[in-house]
Structures are given as structure tokens and as C-alpha cells.
């Protein structure tokens, strides 16, 4: 079972910026234990562009699809046998990243 694990940061109350070494170590462990599928940090939402080509003409909009205080700072994809395993890892991940984590299953 695959889970999208989103790291949520908060513009008004951002998490600490010194987490990278701990996150790297955690990634090593995810790989060693067979949970790791993908990981990636994301650039600031200011760098996002939204494309809408549902109408006559493609429209490009500067910025994220939804403006909010909370935003996606990075993602993982994990392979885990069930939600309990994913939640346990996410509990550690939240501490390690100093940020909130959303766990969402792929269909």
C-alpha cells in the first residue's frame, strides 16, 4: 500500500530550518527498512504556476492553486503494509521535520 506523505509548513509559524541532517538520516532508515519510494522537498509556493487549459485558451497563473497560510513544503511516497505502520513513521517524521505531516493513501 502506497501513501503520499505531505510535509505541511505554516507561513505564520514556520518550522525550524536546521532539520536537513536529521531528515537525511531518517531517509536512510526508510530506504534500509523498505518503506522509501520517493522523497522531495519543494521550492517556495511563490515559484508555482497554475495552468488551466479547460477552456478555449490555456491560462497561466502565477502562484499556488490555493493561497493559504499552510502549504506543502515537501512530499514522500512510502510503501507500508497498513495505516498503523504509516502513522508510526509519520509520527517520527513530524518530530524530525518539526512540521505537520499529512498521510494520504493512493487509490
Amino acid at each position: 500500500m502506497r501513501y503520499l506523505v505531505s510535509v505541511i509548513d505554516d507561513k505564520s509559524n514556520p518550522g525550524s530550518t536546521d532539520r536537513q541532517p536529521a531528515i537525511s538520516a531518517f531517509n536512510e532508515r526508510l530506504i534500509a527498512e523498505g518503506y522509501w519510494v520517493f522523497a522531495g522537498g519543494l521550492a517556495d509556493t511563490d515559484a508555482a504556476t497554475v495552468v488551466d487549459n479547460r477552456g478555449e485558451q490555456a491560462v497561466f497563473t502565477d502562484g499556488p492553486f490555493v493561497e493559504s497560510k499552510e502549504y506543502l513544503a515537501g512530499v514522500w511516497v512510502w510503501e507500508a503494509p497498513d495505516l498503523d505502520v504509516a502513522l508510526k513513521l509519520a509520527t517520527e517524521a513530524s518530530k524530525i521535520c518539526d512540521r505537520k505531516i499529512e498521510v494520504r493513501p493512493f487509490l
Binding site: 497498513d82 495505516l83 498503523d84 493513501p105
Partner: peptide, 14 residues
């Protein structure tokens, strides 16, 4: 079902 909440008694630790 979709999030795969397991059908089991939690481990002694949990």
C-alpha cells in the same frame, strides 16, 4: 478500507 486501517489488536507497546 481506503487508508488501510488494519484489523488487529495493537502491539503491546501501543
Amino acid at each position: 478500507k481506503t487508508a488501510r486501517i488494519p484489523y488487529r489488536v495493537p502491539s503491546a507497546e501501543d
